[in-house]
Nucleic acid binder design. Structure first.
Length: 582
DNA sequence: GTAGGGTTAG
């Protein structure tokens, strides 16, 4: 327009500024600002608001504030709204909130847009009370029927970690929009409440609300968590017959779902078929290989990615480092940590170090692992010390285990897993005093063992078992089957690869028979010979169960796959694919 | 006639 000699005015500037803002071009924006001044439009409220919005979209909040300071007394609400949401979207929630206080002190009226600008700023549990205040304010002003605000408030509660409040609000909305459903579904998915996701999805189907890609990404993520491949497959069929089949987000979610349901072949096919892969696609498939202990395939793909010249990010390095540790590729893993820093200029975080500590620990290089922790440029978190503690268990180093334990309980005092780990280390070294000390500590802190559960999907139904479960209709048969297995397995007996006796080392267990055993016995009872068995456990499989399944797989000609909290264990003919040994 | 807003993958 300027090139053609036409002169913009107060009516046309907002349009021009808006398109410049959508391109996020600060230089062009600044030029336009000069034109605004030259052409005498600098006191037009519409132009000023558009200018502020443009500056905020270009991340130049300081410039936006300068414009705001010159705003005349008219149309103040809209100007405040613009700058408030600008601050919030640039992660300057406090500035936005101060501005809102100022607005109220000056007696400037606020409206729905003001609240919509502020609510997304409440993103951490610490902001929950502020978010609740905004919610109250919203109701007080009679804006509770504004669906956009309600959607936004749901997301706020989700981000602040309060799923109950999110759900309460959701249930009170009489006419929900698709975005309302999506906010709730993806909220549940992000918080790991997979069963709730599927429940809501069912409800949507019943009410004949058509899902979109956002809905299905949440549903697929829930399927991945639950190992619900059958539902995932149905979703895939729906996607294929709809206009969403080329959606990259959905394809990534499908790769992730199939990989986490144990179907790596299918995950790989979808990955290979993608014409335009994103970093997330690579991360999903590489992480999938890593979880299954296929470190070499993971590394191969990672190297292929590097050759294409795509810049890997921190998350991808987590996948590849964890793949190396699960497959025992110590040298390769250390190399990747090195190039991550030197070649890609990425700063390793705690999540990277915990993989590498695990990697060194498994290889028996405990001292190096400890030195690595000491050399970290970020504060080590619980997972880092926890990895060292796990390595001490493998290599029976009680002294270092105590050091790691003291650190880890300081950082995660309520994580029961670490107490159990140390107690098991003491058990192995016959340190009854130590065991007592840990138990006392747990009692003092009122810590109870998280209920471990396992499940097996059979004919589209999930059969869930907790330790010592007697609630299943087939309970009697399951325990009979288990007894038979245990008898056969202990008759088999024999020595492990270190030459030590491994028969029935299990201490008497107050929690009853472990859930994974019940799930496996159920699966053996109900499935045909020759089918593979996938059991999912929410916690990590314990050493005793691991060796039990290993021995069962020697006498029963099946592939047993156990997915636990961190990876897949494939058992066949008396061996396991994982790099662990107990 | 013009400006300010909500939900997505690891």
């Amino acid at each position: 327009m300027l090139q053609f000699g036409a002169t913009p005015n107060a009516f046309t500037f907002p349009f021009i500024l808006k398109s410049s803002a959508s391109l996020s071009l600060p230089a062009t924006g600044k030029q336009l600002h000069c034109h605004v001044i030259k052409l005498g439009c600098k006191s037009e409220p519409f132009v000023l608001t558009a200018l502020m919005s443009m500056y905020c979209k270009c991340k130049l909040t300081v410039h936006a504030q300068k414009v705001f300071d010159e705003v005349p007394q008219r149309n103040l609400t809209v100007c405040y709204n613009s700058l408030i949401s600008g601050y919030v979207q640039n992660d300057k929630f406090l500035n936005g909130f101060y501005l809102f206080s100022e607005m109220r002190l000056r007696g400037v009226e606020f409206n729905a847009v003001t609240i919509l600008g502020l609510v997304p700023g409440c993103t951490v549990p610490g902001h929950l009370w502020l978010g609740m205040c905004l919610h109250c304010l919203n109701v007080k002003c009679g804006l509770e029927n504004d669906l956009a605000i309600a959607n936004c408030l749901i997301t706020m509660y989700v981000r602040c970690g309060s799923m109950e409040l999110a759900r309460r609000l959701f249930d009170h909305i009489p006419e929900k929009g698709l975005i309302t459903w999506n906010a709730m579904i993806s909220g549940y998915a992000q918080n790991g409440l997979a069963a709730e996701v599927l429940e809501l999805y069912r409800e949507m189907e019943l009410l004949q609300v058509d899902p979109d890609a956002v809905t299905l990404v949440g549903v697929l993520s829930a399927c991945a968590n639950l190992g619900a491949q059958k539902i995932g497959y149905e979703v895939e069929q729906n996607i294929r017959s709809s206009g969403m089949r080329f959606n990259v987000f959905l394809r990534n979610a499908l790769i992730n779902m199939y990989a986490r349901c144990g179907n790596l072949e299918k995950a790989r096919i979808i990955f290979d078929e993608m014409p335009e892969k994103t970093l997330v696609s690579w991360t999903a498939i590489i992480g999938g290989y890593g979880m299954h202990g296929l470190g070499n395939s993971a590394v191969e793909l990672f190297d292929k990615l590097i050759k294409t010249g795509i810049q890997p990010d921190g998350t991808l390095f987590v996948s590849v480092l964890s793949a190396c540790s699960h497959a025992g590729l110590t040298k390769k893993g250390l190399y990747y940590l090195d190039i991550m820093k030197r070649e890609y200029g990425l700063k390793p975080g705690s999540e990277h170090y915990s993989c590498v500590v695990d990697l060194l620990g498994r290889a028996g290089r405990l001292e190096e692992a400890r030195k690595l922790i000491e050399s970290m440029e970020v504060e080590p978190d619980g997972a880092v010390w926890g990895a060292l503690l796990g390595a001490c268990k493998i290599h029976k180093n009680v002294e270092l285990a105590e050091i790691a334990f003291n650190k880890v309980v300081e950082l995660e005092p309520t994580n029961i897993g670490y107490y159990v780990l140390l107690s098991n280390i003491y058990t192995e070294s016959n340190n009854s005093e130590g065991i007592l000390r840990v138990r006392l500590m747990m009692r003092e802190r009122k810590l109870k063992k998280d209920p471990g559960y396992s499940y097996f999907e059979y004919r589209g139904k999930t059969h869930l078992f907790v330790a010592g479960d007697i609630g299943h209709p087939q309970t009697e048969e399951i325990y009979k089957m288990l007894n038979r297995l245990e008898d056969t397995v202990s008759e088999l007996g024999g020595a492990n690869k270190n030459g030590q006796e491994v028969i029935n080392q299990e201490p008497p267990n107050i929690m009853g028979v472990h859930s994974e055993r019940l799930a496996i016995a159920f699966a053996l009872l109900n499935t045909e010979i020759g089918t593979d068995i996938l059991v999912i456990k929410n916690l990590r499989i314990c050493g005793d169960c691991h060796s039990f399944v290993k021995r069962v797989s020697k006498i029963v000609d099946r592939l047993f796959v156990v997915r636990d909290a961190t990876r897949f264990h494939h058992f066949r003919n008396g061996t396991c694919s994982c790099n662990d040994y107990w």
